[in-house]
Design a protein around this nucleic acid. Structure first.
Length: 312
DNA sequence: AAGACGAAAGTGGTTGA
DNA sequence: TCAACAACTTTCGTCTT
């Protein structure tokens, strides 16, 4: 066999496509190659395939329609831990009896070493993580976190799925894997405010210090939803850096900063997207973009060029 | 018809007394 | 713990292209 061994894949020495620097860093969380020089994003294997919440809402709805519902299964049984018995079995029809046997089997399995409740939590967690296309290490970490919460009895008196969603969000934050509160709450089908509240509660109870999300972390994903070039991304990245240097970020939501920066750089690089498009992709309102881009462009001395570009 | 603008009123989070 | 505050959202009318 001559072709038994495939020739090893050529590992080319990467150069930044924008500034041709060789100072490339890999972000193992997101799979992106980021230029340490100009901030340009060269490759984003994981990112391209991740699902957008707003941009692909229709698709998502379709998908949800088609799948059966493991989620409703867990929801229906939420909090009600009942053994399935064999009483009155003989009064049932054959197929009903079959169904009950199956249910009883699962019931036994799920009541094994770990509390059944815990298992349900883990499966719901898996569903959210699949939905958001998050790396599997998030699941592991979130599961450990949930277990800790369980042991500390933090879960008591609260809905399991609320704590699950909060765990996932908390882990995303801790690992700098950018997902917005909106995205988590959409995937978990839980109110945004509820996820936020439980997230803060969890972080406090488990003594986890979390730094605020960085706008840069959202950049590659949102830029790719909007089909913007690496040039625009790089420029937006630099704009965000400047915003931080000039201390204009205080008090602002990272989403707002990302949206405004993307708008500015898209216009400047002749790849203009409407405020509405960006607002929908990022999950902020147009008003936020308007206020943000005006102030940022003003402070960075880009306002004139910006207005000029927009008229063309 | 679409995009941008901004006013006005309301919400949730942060901060400081 | 409560009130003040800034950022953000929602809604809506107006203007421009």
């Amino acid at each position: 066999m001559e072709n038994k061994l495939k020739s090893p894949e050529t590992v080319e020495k990467r150069r930044c496509t924008f500034c041709s620097s060789q100072n490339i860093l890999e972000n193992s969380n997101t799979g992106e190659l980021v230029c340490n020089q100009c901030g340009g994003v060269i490759e984003e294997d994981l990112v391209e395939q991740s699902a957008s919440r707003r941009a692909f809402n229709f698709e998502e709805r379709q998908r949800k329609k088609r799948t059966g519902s493991p989620i409703t299964y867990t929801k229906h049984h939420r909090g009600i831990v009942t053994r399935i018995g064999t009483k009155n079995m003989d009064k049932m029809s054959a197929d009903k009896r079959g169904r009950y046997h199956r249910m009883k089997k699962w019931d036994r399995r799920l009541s094994g070493s770990k509390p059944r409740n815990m298992r349900l939590a883990l499966s719901e967690m898996q569903r959210i993580i699949d939905d958001l296309k998050l790396p599997s290490k998030v699941h592991e970490e979130a599961a450990r976190l949930y277990e800790k919460a369980w042991e500390k009895e933090v879960v008591k008196g609260r809905r399991v799925e609320d704590i699950v969603a909060a765990s996932v969000f908390l882990v995303c934050r801790m690992q700098n894997i950018p997902r917005t509160l909106d995205e988590i709450s959409d995937a978990a089908e839980i109110e945004r405010t509820e996820v936020g509240r439980n997230y803060r509660y969890l972080a406090r109870e488990l003594d986890k210090r979390v730094i605020p999300a960085r706008p840069e972390d959202f950049l590659p994903r949102f830029a790719s939803y909007l089909d913007l070039s690496g040039t625009v991304r790089g420029r937006a990245h630099r704009i965000i850096k400047q915003i931080r240097e000039k201390s204009l970020m205080a008090g602002r939501s990272p989403e707002g900063v990302v949206a405004s920066s993307l708008y500015i750089s898209a216009v400047l690089e002749d790849e203009k997207r409407s405020q509405k498009e960006i607002a929908e992709a990022v999950g902020v309102t147009e008003v936020t973009i308007r206020k943000g881009y005006r102030e940022f462009a003003e402070e960075l001395g880009l306002l004139e060029e910006l207005e000029e570009r927009r008229e063309i």
